[in-house]
Design a protein around this nucleic acid. Structure first.
Lengths: 293, 293
DNA sequence: AACATTGTTCCATCTTTCGCACTGTTGTGC
DNA sequence: GCACAACAGTGCGAAAGATGGAACAATGTT
């Protein structure tokens, strides 16, 4: 039972922050030697379960998490005490609590990169009249941390916190392109491709070709690769060593904005992203170590 | 060292979810020697520390959390692995990670009470042209979970996730007023009053008097009690037994909307809140307590 | 009343914990 | 440049405490 189990581990394989999470979607050769995790990590996985799958009853949680009853009870009670989990006494169901929103609110309002980028987003939005977003890198995905939507647009208003795979979003591809080879390879090797639209990049050769083009041009295009009817253009925000840590994108519906028009905004977009990069490096010397870019 | 320390506890006082957190903002007479907490809770407190106080270096975290070095390292690494914490290799500082935003996004989009209330918020906003919010109860505070701002203000709104004390917000007072006596007493006893404006309720007699009026009227007024220049009116969303679990409020600047005008919206507001209450109880019998349901 | 499910208690085991001692790195003052 | 201090991070091991299987109690449900 419980394919994606959450069992304890020997506290030995303390790897070097190599992002061992990213629960693989492939329940292939399950030697049951699943990475044993400690109490804290188990609690987080548990929370994730509740956040993802609506309210769950105890038996369901027990089943899906694979945690033993007694432990699960203790953990849930801890999370309830901290308001990370809500217990519905009538339905006897557990659900994610609103303390998460509180924390997110603080993270959001205090995010320095977001604050540094805000005026640039507003300027781009005013210039283009389209939706502008900033997203940060998160392993094999990118997470939107702010967005400005101009005039009454009807689309996904709540994109903050949205996560997309690196290979099918403008910001994601930009993030890959401005990445040292080793790190890029590490990320790419952990991608599991899925086709969202006919245009989605779903193979390594395609992706590598695209990345080469992107880093040559200085910006990335996403032409209906994640959503039909939506194009976007993205540019990187880089750190001291030229590594992308975030990206800014302009998103527009295909019926309103053609590719040519989108590309016309590239200078402004790149300039905005560069400006944010510059602000992020109050202490940067200039170029670093070996290579100069 | 470490006033607000986070040390382990004997796993015995498993109280009945009595919300023992609520770190008071006043580090005053703290002889309440920290209740000993388990690993999971300690990790949450640690996360809270990072979320609240920007990026911190190791020594600072050690100091402020009171956790021993080795333990702290393990915990931080676990949180980093799960992307709840970001480690800045250049500055050697730890900060809250964006995984929190991802989770919050899911919590937000999947919140059923929010979804049930959305159209009512929109209707109220259209009617009044002012900001409308819905907030849920959170011990001695209330947390905003959604809002609609009539004038084109876009963003995920700084207000979602915002926390206010129960005694100085319309929704908060409403939450207290529709509460059984025992629970009300429990909450009130844990309030630590602070004066935000000259109008803030800062004593129990005042509060009780206000609450009596509120439950008689069916709505609560907040007349510049938390912010100068801002009034609001709020009505309760109640569960099966008449307990408030959330509140809807209309907020307006004093210069634009007088109290009389605000009160004129009470019928619409109360009706909207009642409608949401009704939707929340697909299974509710009718009257409350023991008898026939 | 029999049943199903949630929740609690017990306790032998095994992991985590955490003080301490140690290494490596960064920066400060002379 | 040097020594020195401050800090980040790791390894060790005895003690503390979490873990989890199972039996038990307390709920609803049929």
């Amino acid at each position: 039972m419980s394919v994606n189990s959450i069992k304890p581990r020997k506290s030995s394989d303390r790897s070097k922050h190599e992002l061992p999470s990213e629960k693989s979607d492939k329940p292939a050769n399950e030697q049951i030697k699943k990475k044993q995790v400690g109490g804290v990590v188990r609690a987080i996985r548990l929370l994730d379960l509740l956040v993802s799958e609506g309210p769950l009853r105890f038996a369901e949680i027990e089943d899906r998490s694979g945690l033993p009853k007694a432990t699960l009870h203790r953990m849930l009670n801890d999370l309830i005490d901290e308001r990370f989990v809500i217990f519905d006494e009538r339905a006897l169901s557990y659900n994610a609590g609103y303390r998460i929103l509180e924390m997110a609110n603080r993270v959001w309002t205090r995010s320095d990169i977001r604050m540094l980028a805000r005026d640039q987003l507003l300027a781009l939005s005013a210039l283009t009249g389209e939706t502008v977003q900033i997203a940060v890198h998160a392993d094999t995905h990118v997470v939107v941390i702010d967005h400005v939507e101009s005039t009454q647009s009807v689309r996904l208003s709540i994109s903050v916190g949205n996560k997309s795979p690196v290979y099918c979003s403008g910001t994601g591809k930009v993030m890959l392109a401005w990445c040292d080879a080793q790190r890029q390879e590490s990320i790419i090797s952990r991608i599991s491709f899925a086709r969202y639209t006919p245009n989605t990049v779903t193979s390594l050769p395609e992706l590598h070709k695209d990345l080469a083009l992107i880093s040559k041009r200085g910006y990335a295009l996403d032409l209906e690769e994640s959503f039909i009817g939506t194009n976007s253009i993205a540019a990187p925000i880089v750190d001291h060593g030229g590594q992308a840590i975030a990206g800014i994108s302009i998103t527009a519906p295909t019926f309103r904005v053609g590719v040519d028009e989108l590309v016309q905004w590239k200078e402004s977009l790149i300039a905005a992203a560069a400006e944010v990069s510059r602000r992020l490096a109050p202490r940067a010397g200039g170029s670093m170590d070996s290579s100069i870019n």
